[in-house]
Amino acid sequence: MSATREGRLAKWSVTAPPTLFLLLFFVAPALIVLLAGFQYPGEFGGLAPLADPGDGREHGLTLENYAFFFSDWLFAEILLRSFLVAAAATLICLVMAYPVAWLIARSPRHHRDLLVLLVILPFASNFLVRVYAWMIILGPQAGLAQAVNGFLALFGAGPVNLLFSPFAVLVGMVYVHLPFMILPLYTNLEKHDPALIDTAQDLGANGWQRFWRVTWPLSLPGVFAGAALVFIPVLGMFAVPDILGGTRDMLIGNLIKDQFLGVRDWPFGSVLAIVLTLAVLALAGLAAWAARPRGQYA
């Protein structure tokens, strides 16, 4: 009897502290944002009171913030642009990551950990530093921009700005998220049975056929896992467009940041955060569905 009571005590003394902490600092704030989306903005930013303050100011709940979101195409356009940037970044990451993941997976076992570590190391340096590095490389004084513009001048084309452009935003997004694609792909490719490739070859498949008919379909769960790990953070990113983009490269993350810290319209910012959350949840569900384990012959 006392053993089960002790067991129950152990169970709850282990589970309760992290659960309570996360209920308070993760779930409750999320619910507050959900509620804030239905509130009026406060007089000096923030939120208006829910109860009538008695001075005739706006209070209570409203659908106005959602109506505002749907009233202007601009917001749909920014959301769409965020999706396009995320899709492009994911695709570029995939193309760049696949050879690396493959190389690591096919390397002798004792080299693999080192090759993985070499992927993680740059990734461990500060996020802002990694974005800032591209400010230097793409900057107008740097060799790259001068070479590109020198080349363009040969054809009489005007100089272009590499920095503060959609191109710079994309480069930054890819650079910051690339390891998120390499690692799950590698974990997947490492598990492939080399005998499958040998069999395909014995059956007369050439290199391309072996890749597209054997390796690629088998690697799809890794592709989807990596795609989710790149797409989702890119979708909410504000710092990369903020630092590398121009004024017209605003993404949904920048819009959210402005609502909370700039114009301080928290209710509308909350609506945008909720829209982003729904998009992320839908994508995560899609990725989980796409990467679901299928039959062994699938």
Partner: peptide
């Protein structure tokens, strides 16, 4: 517990900005 991984891993998997703004509102408003 089926709900525990959800509770523990979601904050890691969400775009950081969402946790950032919700904590901002929570700290100040609540």
């Amino acid at each position: 517990f089926p709900w525990l991984p959800f509770l523990v891993i979601t904050p890691v998997a969400m775009p950081e900005i969402l946790l950032g703004v919700s904590l901002l509102v929570f700290f100040i408003q609540v």
